[in-house]
Amino acid sequence: MDELRKTAGRITFPALLLVMLVIQIFPIIWVLISSFKTIDEFRIGSNPFALPKSLYFGNYINAIVKSDLLLYFKNSLIVVVFVLLGILILSSMAGFALEKLRFRGRKAGLLFFLFGIMVPIQVTLIPLYQIYREIDILDTYTSIILPQIGFGLPVSVYLFVSFYKYVPNEVMESAVMDGATMYRLFISIVMPMSANILVTVATLFGVFAWNEFIFPFTFLNSKDMLTVTLGLRDYVGNYGMTDWGATFSAIMLTVTPTFVVYFLLSKSIISGMTAGAVKS
């Protein structure tokens, strides 16, 4: 009986993992396959799960020609760069101060950041819209960069605090005894030791910023400022008619950069997420 249970356990767990993997990967594969179908293959009555009769690359050409996709890529890239700069600089410094510096209100400061995790984004949209309208920054990069930095800080600060717990104090004490200032200590000693957590936070929030929809949809109006997530609406024509081939091709072009970045940096991401889990 025990042997039967062990055998069932060895079979069940991999089977569940396989099912979860299929659920995760199938939509991506379906979009990729659909991006090579011709217009006729999207007609009503055709099998949406059928393989394309041939690889029709014209959809990718149409995706670029019918929409200002390159402009949207540029806008998204600008937003991602400045969001990451703000999150990495502020959260790394805040995490270091909250964990390694001893000052009154340190624990309250950490709780203040963690409280931000519990604030839903949706409840802030109307107040932010009114504030941005009053200070005249609607329809600008600033209007979508600032809230993403603000909502990204709670989690990123927590990750840095957790990492800095296991940075040896002896190393920093030696640097201070050698005459290093606090800023020199942070830049020359702590930051090089934080490479994995920096990559983790950058990748995590870079993907979030690239795929962000609600803030651009709320605060942007002009076509020249749209990001890639909003640009996908360009393929919806009159009376809701959609060029599905171009749409699926644009989706693949949009998500490919995030896949590439994640797979290239996956080892560093895992190391950063598990840093501090076990004290070395």
Rank of each mutant, 00 (worst) to 15 (best):
S268H: 14
T229G: 02
L55K: 12
V201E: 00
A50T: 08
F73N: 06
I135P: 05
S268F: 14
F217D: 14
F36N: 11
I214Y: 09
L114Y: 10
E99Y: 08
I137P: 11
Y158T: 02
G95K: 00
L125E: 06
A250V: 09
L185P: 04
D2F: 14
I121G: 14
V83E: 08
L114W: 10
S271I: 01
M193N: 12
F259S: 09
V236H: 06
L204V: 12
Y141R: 07
S174K: 05
A209Q: 05
I189N: 09
Y183T: 11
I61L: 13
K165N: 05
F186W: 15
E3L: 15
R10Q: 10
L146I: 15
I117R: 02
A15F: 03
T227G: 10
R233N: 13
Y56I: 07
Y239F: 14
G105K: 08
A277Q: 10
T247G: 02
I187V: 14
M191L: 15
L51G: 06
T227L: 07
T124V: 08
Q122N: 09
T242E: 10
Q122G: 01
F42W: 12
S91G: 03
F96Q: 03
E41W: 04
F112H: 09
S188P: 05
D40Y: 08
I270R: 10
F26V: 14
G240I: 06
T227P: 04
M20Y: 10
Q130W: 14
T256S: 13
F42N: 08
L85D: 02
F96L: 11
S188I: 07
F186M: 08
V81H: 10
F163M: 10
Q24E: 13
G237D: 10
F151M: 12
I44R: 13
V255T: 15
E173K: 06
L17G: 07
V207Y: 09
V260D: 04
P52D: 08
T256P: 01
V207F: 14
L77D: 04
G58N: 07
V171K: 07
E173N: 04
A108Y: 11
I144Y: 03
I61C: 02
G95F: 02
A15G: 00
Y141E: 00
V80Y: 08
L204E: 03
N59A: 08
